[in-house]
């Protein structure tokens, strides 16, 4: 763990300058250090570390929401049940399917828009506004607006499709279309974040590289392919991994727009946890499902760290 986590370059174990004193210094700064750390650490242990450990313990018990205490010891029963449950695997698959549907457009469109915006001299604020504004909206607002847009026959999208002579599907009501519709909404909602990350990455590409290549006769397309894209590789890795993790954690859109339906076709992993924990009152089992889900997210983070390391060693 220790070796893999240190990969992101913004996190360094050692600050700028070396310790100025020896053991004597340490003891003198120990008390103020404790005072400075106490408020954060207290809340951190209480609300992050504590619940994480409590959840892990709970996952080995038949804990119920409506009974106090941990309940009967379950051993690995909860895990075995989750891994053997088709509902759990379906929920996991829906989450992965949603991730597959949303990640490519959210990365590629953000990159293309950022590349285009780089060539704009005036009015950049307008593009930032248009693409980023949806990102700050609460999921419930996004859901209300898009439910109206997706309304069969009356909604804006159905009308537009009908106007072109095609038959609009029942967007959120058709099991084959519901997830696609949620993906479209999500792309609209969260694209701005990736767009801004790419804009920031583009600022780090040295100007003189473009100038030098222009003198050598390189056109814009060549510049993008030979200079910009290779230099954006690290940003792209970051965007992809942040996006995959965010997509895996999807809950809000499904919960509000489809309640996991129709016919459970859009129930995500987190909603499964929510359902078994708070509708079925099976807290212990829900904790086991959370832990399995956590391992999935952890695996994705690990892949990112390995990739960042490799990119760093290449540079």
């Amino acid at each position: 763990m220790a070796t893999t986590i240190s990969a992101p370059d913004q996190i360094r174990t050692e600050p700028g300058s070396p310790p100025s004193g020896g053991a004597d210094h340490r003891t003198r700064q120990g008390r103020p250090a404790l005072l400075f750390l106490a408020p954060f650490l207290a809340l951190y242990l209480l609300f992050i570390v504590g619940p994480a450990l409590y959840g892990l313990v709970m996952s080995f018990f038949h804990t119920s929401l409506v009974r106090p205490g941990l309940g009967e010891f379950a051993g690995l029963d909860n895990y075995a049940e989750a891994l053997g449950s088709s509902d759990f695997w379906w929920a996991l698959w829906h989450t992965v399917w949603f991730t597959i549907l949303t990640t490519p457009p959210l990365v590629v469109l953000a990159l293309v828009f950022a590349l285009l915006a780089e060539r704009v001299r005036r009015g950049r604020w307008f593009f930032r506004l248009a693409y980023f504004l949806p990102y700050v909206l609460p999921s419930a607002v996004v859901a209300l607006i898009w439910q109206w847009i997706y309304t069969p026959e009356l909604g804006l999208l159905s009308r537009t499709v009908d106007a072109f002579g095609a038959t609009a599907p029942n967007w959120l009501g058709d099991p084959n279309w519901a997830m696609v519709s949620l993906a479209i909404t999500t792309v609209w909602w969260t694209l701005g974040f990736n767009f801004v990350l790419y804009l920031a990455g583009l600022q780090d590409v040295p100007r003189d590289l473009y100038e030098a290549s222009a003198i050598d006769g390189a056109g814009p397309w060549q510049q993008i392919r030979r200079i910009t894209l290779p230099l954006l590789a690290r940003t792209t890795t970051l965007v992809v991994v942040l996006q995959v993790i965010a997509s895996l954690k999807v809950f809000d859109q499904m919960y509000i727009m489809t309640s996991g339906g129709p016919n459970f076709s859009t129930r995500s992993a987190l909603q499964y946890v929510f359902d078994v924990g708070f509708t079925d009152y099976r807290t212990g089992y829900a904790a086991a499902a959370s832990t399995l889900f956590f391992l999935l997210v952890l695996a994705v983070s690990a892949v990112w760290l390995v990739m960042t390391r490799r990119q760093e060693s290449e540079v």
Binding site: M58, G277, S290, V297
Partner: peptide
């Protein structure tokens, strides 16, 4: 310890936090 917190999605903590 703080670094480990980066790895835990808050969403997996809802069940124990709720009981707590």
């Amino acid at each position: 310890l703080v670094l480990c917190g980066l790895m835990i999605p808050n969403q997996v903590l809802i069940v124990p936090q709720f009981r707590e």
